[in-house]
Structure formats: structure tokens, C-alpha cells
């Protein structure tokens, strides 16, 4: 009986001690990978390769990581594009492309992923992206001894560089190189077609109530530029709320909608045609609407499909031989809902 009590007190003492020593422990484990991943001691013998991620952090990974957890839809798409989809051990609740991603274990949302779930998936590496994940998540994972590779693509060119780098880090250098080269080539081809054509002045509709558009420094704005479109919004905020007066004053040539808008874009378009203010916009009267898939705002290889799709819709004359995308009833990269 007495020994039992001693044990309880030892347990309580240990808990108190650990309460005070937590950060010291953290400091020891702080480098991207502790000596040998504690999650899978069996793999400790496997050689670790050091790579720099997009943020310049040194990350130590197995040469060909077998278990990858992705914390953003764009990363999930990129891993599949690198033909490493079968190594994806976990994805977020928002990872919906390719459809196969839906079959992977979920680890919660990008902002608050479930650490327990990630740990029990025994990842060799967790992929995070600066645009969607929080620094605290990355720090917490590293404290648990899990390697985190972070991407940070703020422009279309960044996406290409980032894909190439990620391919190398995940042991799919050849495939990554091919993907990147393919994207570069498609961009060059698009630039050739659009050469000499003035950029269309577009208004990208993120939201209609209230009207939210995108500022010039976002990834989305860069994607628009590559498709031969220039956003009429010049304020420096990333997701500014714009008044209908300002939209009328700017008089954009096209309204661009994304397929991820909560309503079917066609419903939004129909209702805009009847609303005061909107209905007097030239783009609305002329039915100059372009609808693209959500890929336009995802820094992943599929971005090129969305950029080309948008370019075809707003510069139809630049694609004379293309399989007739009707300018007034734009095709949708998601399968032509319109």
C-alpha cells in the first residue's frame, strides 16, 4: 500500500517536472529532424538527405519518403502530379483533387490539423505551405520530431520553381523536372499567342455580397496576368471589399468567376443581371463573363489548365484553331457545368 502511494507521488512529481521542462525539451528537438525520426525508429538506419525548402529551411528527409502528409489542397495536387500519390498517407479535409485524394486519411483542416492523427500516420515528412498553414502548426510538428517541408509560391513562376524543388526533395527529381519544364513550355506558348494583345481589364469576383475582389499582390492576380488579364483593382490589400460604384467607374471588360464560389456561378451571373448597379455594367450587358475552376487560385501544376482556360475565354481570337470554346458560354475546367 505504501509503495503504491510512493508511485502516485512519483507520477505527480514527474508531471510537474515535465510541466516546467517542456520548452527545454522543445529546444533540443527544434532542428527540423532529431537524430533519427522517433516515430519510426526502424527507419533510423536509412540515410537522410538534406534539402532546402522554399523558405530556405534545412529539412532532413529519407531519400525517397514513403509516407507523406499534405496540409494543403495545392500540395496534395502537386504530390499526385509528381506521381507520388500512393505515398500520401494523409490529406486535409479540403483536399478534393484529384478524386483519389478523397480516399486518403484526413488530418483536419489546414489551419488546425489534428496533431494526434498526423503522429499516428507515421509520416516521413509533412508538407506545409505558407499561404494556408500556421507557423504554430509547423513548430508543434517539429517539436514532436516530425520533419516539415514548407512551400511558399507567391507567383506563377514560384509554382514552377517550387514544384521542381519539391520533386527533388521527395525523390522524384525527374518527374518534377518534367512537370516544371512542361509548365514553362505551356506558359511560353501562351505568352506567344497573347503577344501584342492588350491585357483584358477584368474584375475578379471573389464574393458578391459584399463585393470582394483580389488585390494586385496575390497569387491569383499573377495567374490572371499570365492569362492576359489585368485586374482593375489596384488597392494594396489582398482581398479588398470594393463598392459597386468603384466597379462601375473602372468599367471592366470581363467579370471573372471561380468555380469554387459557393453558389453555382451561373446563378450568381443570372442574379447580377437583374441587380441595380451591376445590370448597368457593360460587361454584364454584353454578357462578358468568364468562369474558371478553383485551380486558378491553387499553386499546383493544374494551375496551367485554369490559366489556359481563362485565356481562351477572354482572348478567343488568339486561339483560332482551338476546339471552339464559345465566348458567351465559357467551358468550365471542372466539366462544363454551364
Amino acid at each position: 500500500m505504501k509503495t503504491n502511494h510512493t508511485r502516485i507521488w512519483v507520477a505527480i512529481g514527474w508531471m510537474l517536472l515535465s510541466a516546467f521542462s517542456a520548452p527545454a525539451q522543445a529546444a533540443q528537438v527544434a532542428p527540423a529532424t532529431p537524430p533519427g525520426p522517433p516515430v519510426a525508429p526502424a527507419k533510423a538506419a536509412e540515410a537522410l538527405v538534406e534539402s532546402h525548402d522554399d523558405l530556405g529551411r534545412l529539412v532532413r528527409l529519407p531519400a525517397a519518403p514513403q509516407r507523406i502528409v499534405s496540409l494543403a489542397p495545392s500540395l496534395t495536387e502537386t504530390v499526385f502530379a509528381l506521381e507520388l500519390g500512393d505515398r500520401l498517407a494523409g490529406v486535409t479535409d479540403f483536399c478534393d483533387y484529384p478524386p483519389e485524394a478523397l480516399t486518403r486519411p484526413r488530418v483536419g483542416g489546414p489551419i488546425n490539423p489534428n496533431l494526434e492523427q498526423i503522429v499516428s500516420l507515421h509520416p516521413d515528412v509533412v508538407l506545409a505551405t505558407r499561404a494556408m498553414n500556421r507557423r504554430e502548426t509547423v513548430e508543434a510538428l517539429e517539436r514532436l520530431g516530425i520533419s516539415v517541408y514548407a512551400t511558399d509560391a507567391r507567383t506563377v513562376d514560384d509554382v514552377i520553381a517550387s514544384t521542381r524543388r519539391l520533386g527533388k526533395a521527395l525523390g522524384a527529381e525527374v518527374r518534377g523536372e518534367a512537370l516544371a519544364a512542361g509548365m514553362e513550355q505551356r506558359l511560353a506558348e501562351l505568352a506567344r499567342r497573347l503577344a501584342g494583345r492588350p491585357a483584358r481589364r477584368v474584375f475578379f469576383v471573389v464574393w458578391t455580397d459584399p463585393i470582394i475582389s483580389t488585390g494586385p499582390h496575390t497569387f491569383l492576380a499573377d495567374a490572371l496576368r499570365r492569362a492576359g488579364a489585368e485586374s482593375v483593382v489596384t488597392v494594396s490589400q489582398d482581398w479588398p471589399q470594393i463598392s459597386i460604384e468603384e466597379v462601375l467607374r473602372q468599367n471592366p471588360e470581363y467579370l471573372v468567376f471561380s468555380g469554387t464560389h459557393p453558389d453555382d456561378p451561373q446563378n450568381t451571373i443570372n442574379s447580377l443581371q437583374k441587380r441595380p448597379g451591376w445590370s448597368s455594367l457593360e460587361a454584364v450587358r454584353e454578357k462578358n463573363f468568364a468562369v474558371v475552376s478553383e485551380a486558378l487560385d491553387r499553386p499546383a501544376p493544374r494551375l496551367l489548365d485554369a490559366i489556359e482556360d481563362l485565356a481562351r475565354q477572354i482572348h478567343p481570337e488568339a486561339f483560332p484553331t482551338a476546339p471552339a470554346p464559345k465566348p458567351r458560354e465559357p467551358g468550365n475546367a471542372r466539366g462544363g457545368r454551364l
Binding site: A19, P23, N112, E136, A140, H217
Partner: peptide, 27 residues
């Protein structure tokens, strides 16, 4: 007005969140 990419977690934080470990030792 401020276009901070870091402000994303803010709304989440305002709701109250314990999933982020404190950088200060609980002791």
C-alpha cells in the same frame, strides 16, 4: 486594411483555441 498573410489564423484564435502549444512552459 492590412494585407497580412499571417492574419489568417486570427479569426480562429478569436474563437478560442487550445491546439497551439504555448511557447511558455506551463509551469
Amino acid at each position: 486594411t492590412i494585407s497580412g498573410r499571417e492574419l489568417r489564423g486570427m479569426a480562429f484564435w478569436l474563437m478560442g483555441d487550445l491546439s497551439t502549444p504555448s511557447p511558455v512552459a506551463p509551469g
